[in-house]
Amino acid sequence: MAEEKKKKKMCIIVSKGTLDAAYPPLILASTAASMDWEVHLFFTFYGLDIINKKKYKNLKVAPIANPAMPMPVPNIIGMLPGMTAMATMMMKRMMKKGNVPSVEELINMCKEMGVKFYGCQMTMDVMGISEDDLLPVIDACLGAAGYLDIASDADVNLFI
């Protein structure tokens, strides 16, 4: 029986907190969970913003020094106040038009399907973030050794 095989396993280090960087780990995690994989997400540095109660709904994408925007913005204009908000609004609108779920929806779907969420204890301490600042999706706060122990026998290991 297929069920008796060891489940495939994926671990992702989520290190970036911009809107565009939040999507790949959450899409891969939810999809892998829907393929009956065991999935672990380890949030570190700015990646913690994705699961920060005060920040996860306000992730942003900046046009400055970002030549890959759908509508490229010269840096001298990208530095003006309000340009980041505008680029973020444009991206959110694009994702909505494409019927891509929001970051919040993806987090909820991941959790529903059993994806495990971890906070990096060291970065939380350095940046003054407590477990209470994070969404209640967090399963544990770990250090590097804890992560490596989980990741050591994963089939897919990613750093995003």
């Binding site: 899409i27 939810s30 999809t31 829907s34 494409g98 019927n99 891509v100 779907m109 399907m113």
Partner: peptide, 8 residues
């Protein structure tokens, strides 16, 4: 619906 919604 777009990826990943169909499989979810």
């Amino acid at each position: 619906l777009s990826c990943p919604m169909p499989v979810l």
